[in-house]
C-alpha cells in the first residue's frame, strides 16, 4: 500500500497563512492504515492547526471530512458542499488524492498535508518499508520475490555490486543488501540458477516513469 508521512506543522501553517476557513480532508484508505491521513489524524491535525493559529492571533475555521477513498472522484464528490463553503482544501490523502481533489474543485487551492513516500509493507507495528516502485515490468519471478528495483540502492538487475558485505549494502545504516536477500531466497527455494541469467537492459522509457503519466485502459470495464 501507499505510505505517507505528515508534513511538519510549521510548513502546513505557512501555506495556510492567507486562509481563514478551510476544509481538512482525510482519506480512509492507505494513509489511514499508516496512521498519516485517516479520520483520527484529521482530528489531531485540525486541533493542532487551530491551536497554533489561535496562539498567533489569527484564528482559522476548519471543516473536517474523511473520504472512503480520495483517489475516486465519486467519493470526492461527497465533499462538494463543504468545499463550496471554504477558501481552500488541505488534503491529507496521498499525492493521488490531493490531485483528485484539485481536479474536482478546480476553483480553489488544494494543499498537501502529507509527503507521499513509497509503496511498502508493514515490517512491524509503526515501521513500514519500501517494496515496489511500480517500474511497470515485474521481475519478481526471477529474483525470488525480492525486488532489486525498489530495494537495491543502485537498482542493479544482475546481482550484487562489490559493495555487498556480510549481508549489508555499502551505504551502511543497516540497510540490507537486496541481492544478498535475493540470493538467500533463491537458494532456499532451489532456484539459484536464476542468478546466472543476464537480465537485459530495462525498458524504463517505455514501461516506466519516463513516458509521462501511465494509463491503464480496460475496454471490458468501461460503461
Amino acid at each position: 500500500m501507499i505510505k505517507a508521512e505528515q508534513k511538519p506543522v510549521d510548513e502546513i501553517l505557512d501555506f495556510l497563512k492567507p486562509h481563514r476557513k478551510i476544509l481538512l480532508a482525510g482519506c480512509n484508505a492507505c494513509v489511514a492504515v499508516c496512521h498519516a491521513g485517516g479520520e483520527k489524524e484529521v482530528g489531531i491535525l485540525s486541533s493542532a492547526l487551530k491551536m497554533a493559529r489561535k496562539k498567533a492571533g489569527q484564528k482559522i475555521e476548519i471543516l473536517e471530512d474523511c473520504s472512503t477513498r480520495q483517489c475516486e472522484p465519486e467519493f470526492v464528490q461527497e465533499l462538494k458542499e463543504k468545499a463550496e463553503e471554504v477558501e481552500a482544501v488541505l488534503s491529507i490523502a496521498c499525492g493521488v488524492g490531493v490531485q483528485t481533489v484539485a481536479r474536482m474543485f478546480s476553483d480553489i487551492p488544494v494543499y498537501p498535508g502529507l509527503n507521499t513516500t513509497f509503496m511498502g509493507e508493514t515490517d512491524e507495528l509503526g515501521v513500514w518499508i519500501e517494496r515496489c516502485q511500480a517500474c511497470g515490468n515485474c521481475v519478481l519471478h526471477v529474483t525470488g520475490g525480492v525486488c532489486p528495483v525498489a530495494r537495491c540502492a543502485k537498482q542493479l538487475l544482475n546481482g550484487p555490486c562489490g559493495g555487498s558485505q556480510d549481508g549489508e549494502c555499502e551505504i551502511g545504516n543497516d540497510v540490507p543488501c537486496a541481492w544478498q536477500q535475493i540470493y538467500d531466497r533463491l537458494k532456499t527455494i532451489g532456484q539459484l540458477h536464476r542468478m546466472e541469467e543476464i537480465i537485459p537492459v530495462k525498458k524504463w522509457g517505455r514501461e516506466s516513469r519516463d513516458k509521462g503519466p501511465r494509463t491503464i485502459s480496460r475496454e471490458d470495464l468501461k460503461l
Binding site: 555487498s164 558485505q165 540470493y183 542468478m195
Partner: peptide, 15 residues
Amino acid sequence: PFGDPFEFRVIRLAK
C-alpha cells in the same frame, strides 16, 4: 572476490 555472497562472486564473473 571479497564481496558477499562469496559463492556468487564466480557466478558474477561468469555473467
